[in-house]
Amino acid sequence: MIKLIAIDMDGTLLNEHHLVTDKVKKAIKEASNAGIKIVLCTGRPVQAVYEYLKELEMPQDEEDYVISLNGTVVQKTTTWEIVYSHELDHKHLVEAEKLIGSFEMNFTYFDENNYYFTGEPTEMMHYDVNLLGMEAKHLPIKEIPKEMKVFKAMYVAEATELDRLVASLPPFISENFYPIRSLSYVLELLPQKANKGEALTGLAEKLGFSMDEVMAIGDGENDLDMMKVAGTSIAMGNAVDSIMQAATHVTRSNQEDGVAHAIYEWALKG
């Protein structure tokens, strides 16, 4: 019996217009009414999740949570208390930013609520900021206050430019970060122990659920860890090959209300 459903946002919950369709809203509400815990599990910072939580009427009680920044932060949706987090070392951020060199890209990073960047803003960075509905703040790495917690960093660039960077990355990156290509134009640097799978496992344990009672729905490389730990894993019809191969089931695409189909077929039908 499914007791918790973890749902990715971009490419999964949201269609190509970044909207939650009425059919998906209805399915989520029915699952919630049936006693199933719904948890958004996203690479977005929590500030870029607020409006969707309100739209889905999800902040219901003290035991409702959101997993943000690809598993580096887990927060209550009622008080925004952080119950789980991993952060990056400032010294490692300084070294990672140096790798940009002559590449046309931005080095960006997040604390709990803000999107920061270094260098001159590129078109791809503006696209990413607009997608999240946020305002980017310029703050050089060496000027980060000592007390500021940084949960995730990113290289943001056109896909071909990012390919060049990825091909030249030194061992330092994998030794000190958990790197993941979440989008064609984004390479994320997470704390080594942080990913959606670790966060989802910890949250399920906190709520008293076994992983056999957890369903995960996703489409991208950054969803792979949660797909591997969930007892029931659903690949969207538009998912990348690695997600298709890891999933126990495949639903329709995000253009065809795939999340709703998954909820009805593998969570509520049983």
Rank of each mutant, 00 (worst) to 15 (best):
L190F: 09
G208F: 12
N114S: 07
L53Q: 14
A48K: 08
M124A: 02
E161A: 08
A27T: 06
D163C: 05
V49F: 01
V166T: 13
E81I: 05
T160L: 13
E120Q: 08
N176D: 09
E57K: 12
E143M: 05
T118V: 03
E63G: 01
I36H: 09
S85N: 12
A6M: 09
K193A: 13
V94C: 11
P121N: 06
L69V: 02
N254W: 02
G197Y: 12
A230N: 01
E62S: 10
D10W: 03
V214S: 03
E63A: 11
S102A: 09
I234T: 08
Q47H: 13
L207F: 11
R164N: 12
L69N: 04
A204S: 09
T122G: 04
I5D: 01
P45I: 11
H138Y: 14
F177L: 10
E30D: 15
N238R: 06
P45N: 07
G231M: 03
L268R: 10
T12Y: 04
E63C: 06
A260S: 13
E256F: 01
N106F: 12
V259F: 11
K91I: 11
S174W: 01
P145M: 06
P171S: 13
T108V: 08
I217G: 03
F177G: 11
E30Q: 15
Y127V: 12
T232S: 13
L200D: 05
Q245D: 13
G208R: 15
A260K: 00
L53K: 09
F110C: 10
V250S: 12
E188V: 10
V74E: 02
G35E: 05
I141Y: 08
M134G: 04
Y65E: 06
K146I: 02
V24A: 06
A153G: 01
A6L: 02
L224T: 08
Y52K: 12
E188T: 08
M154A: 14
E51V: 08
T78H: 02
K142E: 05
